[in-house]
């Protein structure tokens, strides 16, 4: 696959084990599934629904390695970690409210940067077929 400014599809390559059909399905999933999840995260952050936000952020932890955009992966990990600390080590609600919504906006923005590259990778795969 091509080299991109933001994304790195090495993990996706590894998981698809050279199977072009599987690569295509995974890329299609990356082009569609995360947008809904990130929208949900924005809504939950606005509502300060931290418990549900943690579940969505945690779920995204195993999707983001497929995109291979380190800043995106790490920002989401920060959200998951802060919300874990809220549940387990008493980090204050004020600290969460002051930090997490900004991090949630950042993951959405970073995903927006990844999208054209993901689309390009998908188009290239289709052209090879």
């Amino acid at each position: 696959m091509d080299n991109y400014k933001h994304i790195d599809l090495s993990y996706l390559e590894l998981m698809s084990d050279g199977d072009a059909d599987m690569k295509g399905i995974l890329l299609d999933m990356l082009l569609t599934e995360p947008s809904g999840e990130f929208e949900k995260m924005q809504k939950l952050a606005a509502e300060q629904n931290w418990d549900e936000l943690k579940q969505v952020s945690h779920k995204m932890k195993s999707t983001l390695p497929y995109i291979g955009f380190e800043e995106l992966t790490e920002t989401n990990k920060k959200i998951d970690k802060m919300l874990w600390e809220r549940q387990n080590s008493g980090i204050s609600e004020d600290a969460i409210a002051a930090t997490v919504p900004t991090l949630v906006s950042t993951v959405s923005e970073l995903y927006t940067k990844a999208l054209p590259e993901l689309q390009d990778a998908r188009n290239n795969l289709m052209n090879l077929a």
């Binding site: 599987m22 399905i25 995974l26 999933m29 990356l30 599934e33 779920k59 195993s62 999707t63």
Partner: peptide
């Protein structure tokens, strides 16, 4: 598993 990508890859 609640993550669709994990479901797909693991099952496959």
């Amino acid at each position: 598993e609640d993550n669709k990508m994990n479901q797909f890859v693991t099952k496959r």
